[in-house]
Amino acid sequence: MPETPETNPARIVADADVLVADLLVGGPAREAMDDIRSHSWVELVASDALLEDAEEVIRELADEDLAAAWREEIEALRVEVEHPEGDHPALASAYRSQAAHILSYDEGLRSAEASAAFGSRLNVSVKTPAGFAGLFDAASLYEAVEDGEYPGPDRDPRK
């Protein structure tokens, strides 16, 4: 049986629903994404397929120009990962990058869908944006993945 890979607690996947909600709704999705954007050592991992899903929904609910502008900004933020075509973009992005967290509004990702796709090889915590934002402890996380004392946010999340 394959071993469960170690995950990186500072590596996070936001599913397309959270990425779109960050842009078009705000609230907990933006709060969670601001936590990520505020720290250069926290990695937002996403495949092209995941970003294309989000871009398509933005195009449908807003317009082409806003979708293109969003894609330019998110490209500068994300760490790219590749996975086979047809895999669930969020689950596969997490699996391929050893991300520790998936942010999603889809409760199905928490259990059956993830187990069916990757079984025990996927060692990831699926959280709602509100759950993530409520639990995010940058200082503890920094001590776990970096050397030294947490210096505070090192990026403006809105630039």
């Binding site: 909600a21 842009l23 078009l24 899903d53 929904v57 609910l61 807003a62 502008a69 900004e73 809105r158």
Partner: peptide, 27 residues
Amino acid sequence: MSWDDLFERAEEYETDVETIRERLAAH
């Protein structure tokens, strides 16, 4: 363009998480 600029431009489009989830699922 900054994230704040994007959020400001996005304000004219009113939607909610449920609508986003439905569109994503359909896509």
